[in-house]
Design a protein around this nucleic acid. Structure first.
Lengths: 335, 335
DNA sequence: CTGAAAGCGCTAACAA
DNA sequence: TTGTTAGCGCTTTCAG
């Protein structure tokens, strides 16, 4: 019950291997008649080409890798959804890897791609990634890379991200206009592009509105819910606690909701909350949550489209830094 | 700047290709001294084996495929997370495909795996899948398959699922005990194992408690939010509308929340709600949502572990039907 | 302990 | 229009 290969097929057909191969790939060299006959038999025998043989031969695999820090995250999920959408359309296969925010593992993964396992790679960097050497090597090996969301512009690669600085600015201003005077920010690692941009937007909005920047109001959160819970609880237990909180990442806000319940802090009366988030249920929360939503699906689509262009038209491809816009949706948590 | 291959490496080392190959794979035939020398140089040149060549040769790729109906779904995400966890540990690569509930596409995908692109496959079936022939063929080709959640026991393959019948029974009983007399059920396709089990559990619980089964209270939902919205609205607008609703799938309940807001139906006073769900924010909703939560991550882990056993120990492997238990978490929506 | 050589299944020159 | 053949990079006999 083994699957047929070209050789068997050709002997069944009484043709040479190469003729069959060409016929199946619609070569102009083969007569219509033969093509038809070959395809019919191939179908009848359910012939499936061995992709390892053809990839080896062509040095192309129609496969791309996607590395994300984690998958249990609404943003990355939607991005992957978008990536899949265009990959499927363009007949690419998608290998998914989770770096779990480990630079070492990211490096190992990226290096393993150098030998051509994939035709290209999409990546959202870990919080720890400083050094781009592993990525540079991959690119030098002729394997295109496209960054999304957590990007680096150090390399000559396309990036797809959002207007984080502006959004953070807008979010902070939104809190100020809602009457907040003491606005805190839960930031994400400043090794990340998004960490810096979101922090800067926050700071500049404060400055514009003549509010002091207090370092005690800027807390660094991690990737660990338990730790973040402590961090946020400490922040909100302070006697001089903030009256507004802008968080760089959805999970921090969900933790803040829990902490507020526990401490009896009322949202939005005592504390107004806004966050970057792709939560589907933002509008159903108690109270409903004001969000800045990134166009995650489109980011994924764009990134995949860029990558596939880079793979298929290496001559004409020009790397670009694509910026998509996020949307602020005001809800009750800042009312 | 091309990546080195075995041949280059061996000429650098002044050894034969086969010696280098063996040394890198720690063959007992090679002296420790040589091994060390080889590995050192291999590392220095960042040698990465060409996976297509070795897969072709060994007819093994250390790659598995995962087919899920969709990815934007908390259950499947967690399951994939679990799959990744064990795949990574066992050094397997994971290709992800979305069937988008299309049987035709599922079939096409499965067939394409026959030639050995992957060493095994994990699948959660589409709502349309009736016929198992494509899967049977794959298995006959020597490529192991493991089902998870949306399973079929028609083939001699492992399955990993949850005690859906009992959970549905328990959920319905939970509503009855909360005082509901007219309990509706939003069901999912009864081509699916889970669709049948959840409906049966619902029906039997009604029967046990001497409540009539009304077909008008059982509505079939789809995969389309807009349609489901209409369906659920019709159900809840009825003058003889239900006072309890048990939905087979998370998204139906989120829609029900929205419909209730719109129609001014108060949860839980006017309508009590319970659903299968892996929503992280169930406890933060307004009102908090009573859920039956499937151990999605563990399902993924188990399924992947089964698959890898089937791949690596074909002789000793015995397919099993593994059932994990879901947990009912009572919250305000049924209070 | 090391090396030579065959061949996995396919593609693409080149020949016929 | 079809066929012959070399070879992609690796693993694995088998010989030395």
């Amino acid at each position: 019950m083994d699957s047929v290969n070209l050789k068997k097929l050709s002997s069944i057909l009484g043709l040479s291997v190469s003729t069959v191969s060409k016929a199946l790939r619609d070569s102009y060299e083969i007569s219509e008649e033969t093509k038809e006959r070959v395809k019919k038999i191939a179908k009848a025998y359910n012939y499936q080409p061995n992709i390892y043989a053809s990839s080896l031969r062509k040095a192309k695999s129609k496969t791309i890798a996607v590395i994300v820090p984690r998958i249990a995250n609404n943003f990355f999920i939607s991005a992957i959804d978008g990536i899949q959408e265009v990959a499927q359309e363009k007949k690419y296969h998608v290998l998914i890897y989770l770096s779990h925010e480990s630079y070492e593992y990211e490096k190992e993964l990226v290096q393993s791609f150098a030998s051509g396992r994939v035709d290209g790679m999409l990546i959202s960097l870990t919080r720890e990634t400083n050094d781009m050497e592993h990525l540079r090597q991959l690119v030098n090996n002729g394997i295109p890379v496209v960054f999304f969301d957590r990007v680096s512009t150090e390399l000559d690669c396309s990036t797809v991200s959002t207007n984080d600085y502006e959004s953070a600015f807008e979010a902070t201003e939104h809190l100020i206009k809602a009457g907040c005077k003491k606005i805190a920010h839960c930031r994400i690692s400043n090794k990340l592009s998004i960490g810096q941009h979101r922090l800067n937007g926050y700071r500049d909005a404060l400055e514009k509105h003549n509010l002091d920047f207090h370092s005690k109001y800027v807390v660094k959160c991690s990737d660990n819910d338990v730790e973040d819970y402590k961090t946020i609880k400490t922040l909100l237990k302070d006697k001089d606690r903030p009256d507004g909180l802008f968080t760089a990442v959805e999970s921090y806000t969900l933790i803040a909701y829990e902490v507020c319940r526990e401490l009896g802090i009322k949202i939005p009366q005592d504390l107004k909350l806004i966050t970057f988030s792709n939560l589907r249920t933002a509008g159903l929360l108690d109270p409903s949550l004001t969000t800045i939503t990134q166009p995650a699906f489109e980011i994924g689509e764009k990134a995949a489209a860029e990558l596939i262009s880079a793979i298929e038209k290496p001559r004409y491809f020009k790397p670009e830094n694509i910026i998509l816009k996020s949307v602020l949706s005001p809800r009750d948590s800042t009312n």
